[in-house]
Nucleic acid binder design. Structure first.
Lengths: 119, 119, 119, 119
DNA sequence: GTGGTCTAGACCACG
DNA sequence: GTGGTCTAGACCACC
């Protein structure tokens, strides 16, 4: 479980953790129905207050990336069920950025070229 | 001066104002060396405490979008001086979003198509 | 934490505090990632309004000398990252002073002698 | 009379004018007992409020760089009488900068080299 | 009139 | 406990 917390990041810690787990689930590093680390173990692992981990998991569950079973633990949800929503979110952010690019007088071609060269 | 404040928005008020003015300056709606509304007048206009407006302006000035002259007012800076930096910032955000798109298994072609259709 | 505020000084209080902390960080009196006094405690310590301390810290952070973590506190940044920029600033001021010395018909040798004798 | 006012400069306008005149007198561009431009003419010349020019001259006179004769105008004072005071001021600023250089871990040799290369 | 600083006191999210 | 935002109201220097 490789999670790095950036304390200089302005976003709250619980959000960073939640997002990182989200990525791990989306990319398949954590398979469907696979168990997530317990609140306590992850808290120790990251040297973070358990309350914060709890909040991260609550956030993750609320977004639909995992589900909890009383007395057994927390498990990754099926990606296919969450994907569409995330893509919608993504394109909203993408839209916003495209608007910003217009303000900066950047042409579509420049952006397309940039994408092509990326990675 | 059409600025709308969204109190449901989680971002602080001063940031919303600062960003809105930033756009107005970048897109040329407020020309170089043109005067911005005074702290007090804008405060009354938006029904916001003058201190908050001041903070918004401080933020804007710190980013290089305007300069202030004591006893005279505040004026828009030359966009050309700020542009390069803003573009750099833009591509950093763009990069981040492209990485996210990979996680969501979106192909470059989809993004390019999306851009082409945009607006 | 020895900070003295000079109320006769024309510079604003927040600037005096910011600069003093800046020195403490630059000279290593406050090590990297070491915690700075909290807004409230310093406010009480100096008998200054917390808002003013906050502003001092904002200023310090904006200059890159520290970073803040919500709910945790504020910490000194790595000097090595700020050094180059500060040196550049220094030489700009130095340049300006050298020009002034020319106006006063002071010779380079006099200045060099003065430096040699200094401290 | 070539005086440029920088409105982006944070220093008050009257101070900029006063300082500029001061330089002109110190470097001999305005000779001893030579007349300075009248408040009104300079105000028109610089498109500045006469009150501000007045304040600049008051400042200049108070520093000893000029004297006024009722009904005749204002005249440059003898440089020799002001020089010593200005040099003292200069070295105070110079001292302050040298202290700062120590904080930045700059060696005396670096500063001396810098002076030698200057201009 | 303008920008800028400061105080006092309140509220919120985060850990 | 911490940092951060906001309001209300005051004072100052500058133009």
């Amino acid at each position: 479980m490789i999670i790095k917390i950036d304390f200089r990041d302005k976003r709250p810690i619980y959000e960073q953790i939640s997002e990182k787990l989200q990525e791990l689930i989306l990319c398949g590093a954590i398979g469907v129905d696979e168990s997530l680390p317990s609140v306590r173990s992850l808290a120790i692992d990251l040297s973070i207050n358990p309350n914060t981990i709890q909040k991260a998991y609550d956030n993750l569950e609320q977004k639909g990336f995992c589900y909890s079973v009383a007395g057994r633990g927390r498990f990754a949800a099926a990606v296919s069920e969450v994907m569409p929503g995330k893509r919608k979110e993504f394109f909203e952010k993408f839209d916003q950025l495209l608007n910003e690019s217009a303000t900066l007088q950047l042409k579509k071609e420049e952006l397309i070229d940039y994408i092509k060269k990326h990675n």
